[in-house]
């Protein structure tokens, strides 16, 4: 069952900090497959964090391949226990989230960063990401801390309904 349902607000897993994976075992590799499969099954989805599919573990998938706002692009990748090593250049842009399907928001994110973690083979990797890939990584990192873009907007005029009429 590689494609999993994506949880939406107000599911409690989405606002709960995830716990470290520690060792990349079969269960972790299976989680990596589910993250990528679920991300690919969802049109326009460029990233998915484990809590969004109900798994409270520190893991996410990102793939910004072909996106017009992307500069750096590492293809589809999964990181376990990710941490930010360097960050720079805040930029404001609008983003949405599969777990908050009705709203979008303007959020300031660092324009470039170095993120390190374990890949599905258990090797430690460090990725330099910028532009849209950097934004996607930071959005997924927030999910691991139980935070949504709604928690990052600079004020009431930075939250927008996707559709005014439903």
């Amino acid at each position: 069952m590689p494609v999993r349902p994506v949880l939406v607000l107000p599911h409690p897993v989405l606002v709960t900090p995830a716990v470290a994976v520690g060792v990349v075992d079969e269960a972790a590799r299976s989680l990596a497959v589910d993250l990528v499969d679920t991300m690919r099954a969802s049109p326009a989805c460029v990233g998915l964090a484990a809590p969004q599919i109900g798994v409270g573990r520190r893991a996410f998938a990102v793939d910004v391949t072909g996106h017009r706002k992307a500069r750096s692009c590492h293809g589809a990748f999964v990181l376990f226990d990710p941490e930010v090593l360097e960050r720079s250049q805040p930029e404001l842009a609008r983003e949405g989230c599969m777990s908050v399907p009705d709203l979008t928001g303007d959020v300031q994110r660092d324009g470039a960063l170095v993120v390190a973690g374990l890949d599905p083979e258990g090797r430690r990797v460090a990725l330099e990401v910028d532009a849209f890939e950097a934004r996607a990584v930071q959005h997924e990192l927030d999910h691991l801390d139980g935070l949504l873009f709604l928690d990052r907007v600079p004020g009431p005029h930075s939250v927008f309904p996707r559709k005014v009429y439903r």
């Binding site: 607000l9 107000p10 009705d102 709203l103 709604l150 009431p156 930075s158 939250v159 309904p161």
Partner: peptide, 15 residues
Amino acid sequence: HLVGSSGAPVYVMTL
């Protein structure tokens, strides 16, 4: 913003 489905309404407030 009152969003979500009628069966599971979600309230989002920013101040």
